Computed example of a mutant assay.
Amino acid sequence: MTAPLDPGALTPDQARALFRAGLRVPTSGWCAGWTQANLIAVPREYAFDLLLFAQRNPKPCPVLDVTEPGETASPLFAGDLRTDLPGYVVYEHGVPVAEVGDVTAYWREDLVSFLIGCSFTFEDALREAGVSVRHIEQNRNVPMYRTNRMCRRAGEFGGPLVVSMRPVPAAQVADAVRVTSRYPSVHGAPVHVGDPVELGIDDLSAPDFGDPVEIRVDEIPVFWACGVTPQAAVMASRPKLAIGHAPGHMAITDARDSRYLVP
């Protein structure tokens, strides 16, 4: 199955139907104006610790919604959380054991799902402000990196901050900061601008998740907190089971981006 020519024109329902039918693609640039979210689902016994982890680390883990145990939909996401994302990663004791397009076979009635804000939500606003988004231009997944910054631990969960990176012309960095700071529920302003070594990132051409992108001579790497951080915490903390979205393969919700825009 191939992606539609204009995925940005789709509604969330239309996109979720394609993913349910087996299309597996990163979702940056899909469903313009509709909010995208990271997914992490854990057994109920870990849910409070994960919620506390998110509360203590709101920059990478801004919670948009939390389900009751076993629920496969929410007011924010009218689809099926088990089938309507384009890709999932299943973890057992912190180890990825499956990367699939449907997690029905792994689902349990005690799983609590968290929808975490995603920086894809502010990419339309960046482009409207004249700031290019390189991974969309190159039809690639956004590059994501583990950093040397540790999140504040909460119960069972601890681990490194994960960041996404977008190269921005030096003259437009202030614009990128201004635009994204108005979306605090989807990571907001960057956490770092410039030298990646300060984050413990040695090679921008080798992201931990996603794909490398071109960085031009006049551009500066700009880093935003990333909602893959809970999955890094799962890998570091090793709960019995967790299910997350495949990085870059998001839950497309029924909320508008404007819902998360602040004056």
Rank of each mutant, 00 (worst) to 15 (best):
R178C: 03
E45D: 09
P169F: 03
G194L: 09
E198A: 15
R149W: 15
H192Q: 04
E71L: 12
L241E: 00
P212Q: 09
P43E: 00
R108F: 02
I116C: 06
V89Y: 01
D218C: 08
W107P: 10
R182F: 09
P58C: 03
W34E: 02
D80E: 11
L64V: 04
G8L: 12
V112G: 08
M250C: 07
N148V: 03
R108T: 12
T83F: 00
D80A: 04
I243Y: 00
Y260T: 03
S113M: 11
P184H: 12
A154C: 09
P263F: 10
G101W: 00
P184C: 10
G188E: 05
Q14L: 07
E71Q: 14
Y88P: 13
G101S: 14
G94F: 06
C118K: 09
S258I: 07
P43Y: 01
V162H: 09
P86T: 04
S113G: 10
A174S: 15
V103P: 11
I252R: 03
F77D: 11
N38S: 08
R259G: 04
A129H: 12
E156M: 02
G244M: 00
T229S: 11
D84A: 10
T147R: 10
W34V: 05
A129D: 09
D202Q: 15
Y91C: 06
P62D: 05
A171G: 09
D208Q: 08
G188N: 05
W107I: 04
H245D: 01
T147W: 07
M250Y: 01
R166Y: 01
L199D: 07
D80L: 09
C118R: 13
E68Q: 13
N148C: 14
G101P: 06
F122R: 08
R16A: 11
E109R: 07
S164I: 00
P184Y: 08
S132F: 14
Y183D: 01
P43V: 00
P247S: 10
V213C: 07
P62C: 08
P60C: 03
F77R: 10
A236T: 13
G158H: 14
K240M: 06
S258A: 14
I220E: 15
W34K: 05
W224S: 10
F209T: 04
V133K: 12
R82A: 02
D80W: 02
P26K: 02
H135S: 13
H245Q: 07
A17D: 13
E123T: 11
T180Q: 05
E45T: 01
